[in-house]
Nucleic acid binder design. Structure first.
Lengths: 343, 343
DNA sequence: AACATCGACGAAAAGGTTTTAGGAATGTAC
DNA sequence: GTACATTCCTAAAACCTTTTCGTCGATGTT
């Protein structure tokens, strides 16, 4: 049925076709369809009917050529497979009402050359703006070259403070996690996290340390256990922590995957979670956090909201002056059974 | 630096600007830039230099308006968060050489109304073709309405056999899994999988049964254990299977998440994997499969390749006759430590 | 010297839409 | 019957690029 072209002979119907069918000029047809200008009610109906019959859709290219606005936006991500880009992308897509603005998706694969290539293509397509999504929270070099449209950086801020960046408050996230553990009555809190080369790891650790300091405490082991972001490290590090500091009663993990590993080891060692030890993860990665034993309390970075905000910010920047205005957004605790109030 | 508009007064430079700067007509400038027509070498250089100076990028809208080809493609997915869409999307993006073709991304959120809305917007933008990515392998209703461009359905085939569909051979995948377990010397194989309402679950079970039959065997428990796709079900079902059929020496799981649950239970029950029992998953979801204890052998559906093929198919359909031609692609076994050759 | 050939370039049209300025009715007041 | 306002509609320009065809000058041929 709908395989390929329905009417090989028929090009897409144009406004001229509609006007002809309705017996008016193209100008009138245009005004009737867009509800602009003075046009008699009866005429408008006739035009709309004609448009319906031909299933006319205005050619966005011609429209954009004339108006200078294309109603399109470029979304530049550096790692599609990474699970950070996707929620952001969804949020941004939501921010652009269905059908009003369309999104060009480009994955630069973390390659600067490829990125430049994509930017060029997008500018050539006359996008009205760009959203750049990073895969790490470390500041990234801003887009190079003459970019004649507004740009909003998300998750990874631009290194240039004059750009618009929307980021996660990772320090606050770390504080949130430790505050929650403290509220659960825990006092001996360790922090197992990913690579120290990640700003995100350092920020979360900083927040954790600050929250502990505010309570007159220090981290078990004095320093965070930096390693990698995966389960294996979680398992290994947990074994170290418990071996060196049996008094530990809570572990704040830098990722849900690390937390899964930690849970595994604690189980192996016969330590009850959350009875003797509470565990909290980071990312709130549903597939990982919601199916462990016990299910994992985690910090959610509200990435989808981040994407939505980025979309809105881009909007206001597109039709208005782009005031450089970087914002950090708070995370939230998602409660599950791996932490419980003291009892 | 590159914040917002670099030159608020300057609209994007046009070919006219380039021509003026180079001291030639627009026609000559166009030919020089596109390498078409007869133009003296010296002149060409002058034009190219002028273009460079102004950082001129040809307006794709004007170009598309004239040629009828926009060099854009719509990618309609039904669930961005789902992990099936993403690899397919990446594959498709790869298939369209960097910058040549740009991809409009639309997420219909599984809503038919929203999908129609997106399709309309895409057609209005004059995309050259559409790729429709489903989230389940069950056939889906084809796009409704008069679609004047080629459409390729991926993962979820169109219910209309006259459409072009690119799908996974799930029956083959099930066969592959069981054949691998048989090659490992296993004879008492159970199958724990997701909801029976999923075509994918039924297909994989069918393939598994066929492979067993070919070896003169039947499934442990005679039938697949249908349930849900997550770890909890894996844990529960594994307990059932081992309780009812202690002789089981291999479990084929319908998803990696189920397999993780199964591994957990087997560990709890003190059964060595892969010593006494082999476990194989499905999806090869890196984050899940590559960090379990032991790491999980799994069936990879080659989704990225699927996306790439869809892109190519769309290409040939765009510039040529769209011969309805549905293809099923094979999966492959990714070997890890949860299964081992007999020994 | 007259003419054909050829290379290099420019003028103009086309593509579909929106908008501005103006034109053709119609009706009203004198 | 003329002057004028009102209402609805149309012609034409603009957006930017590509392509076709024609022009013009120079070179080579007889």
């Amino acid at each position: 049925m709908t395989t390929g072209r329905e009417n090989p002979a028929n090009r897409a119907p144009t406004l001229t076709d509609v006007a002809k069918l309705a017996g008016v000029s193209v100008a009138t047809a245009s005004k009737a369809i867009n509800g602009r200008g003075e046009v008699k009610a009866a005429t408008r109906v006739r035009v709309l009917e004609a448009a319906e019959v031909l299933s006319f859709a205005p050619n966005a290219l011609a429209r954009g050529l004339l108006s200078g606005r294309t109603g399109t936006v470029g979304l530049l991500t550096s790692d599609l497979e990474g699970r950070f880009s996707i929620p952001i992308l969804m949020g941004a897509e939501d921010a652009f009402g269905a059908g009003q603005i369309s999104v060009f998706l480009c994955d630069a694969r973390g390659d600067a050359i490829r990125e430049m290539h994509h930017v060029r293509a997008l500018l050539s397509r006359r996008v009205d703006g760009l959203i750049v999504v990073g895969s790490r929270t470390d500041p990234r070099p801003p887009l190079t070259g003459n970019i004649p449209v507004p740009v909003v950086y998300v998750y990874a801020p631009s290194a240039d403070p004059d750009d618009i960046s929307i980021t996660v408050d990772n320090v606050g996230g770390g504080r949130l996690a430790v505050d929650h553990l403290l509220a659960c009555g825990r006092r001996n809190i360790a922090h197992i996290t990913g690579e120290a080369s990640f700003q995100a790891a350092r920020d979360r650790a900083e927040g954790a340390a600050a929250a502990l300091a505010a309570a007159g405490l220090t981290m078990v082991g004095e320093r965070p256990y930096y390693g990698s972001w995966d389960e294996s490290w979680g398992r290994a590090a947990a074994r170290m922590v418990v071996g060196q500091h049996p008094e530990v009663d809570a572990i704040f993990c830098g990722s849900d995957q690390i937390a899964r590993g930690v849970l595994d080891t604690l189980r192996d060692l016969g330590r009850d979670v959350p009875g003797s030890t509470s565990v909290i993860g980071f990312d709130n990665w549903e597939a990982i956090a919601a199916h462990s034993r016990p299910r994992l309390t985690s910090i959610d970075m509200n990435l989808q909201r981040l994407g939505a905000v980025a979309g809105q910010r881009l909007f206001t920047a597109i039709d208005g002056v782009a005031l450089p205005d970087s914002e950090e957004f708070p995370s939230r605790v998602v409660l599950r059974e791996s932490t419980v109030p003291f009892g």
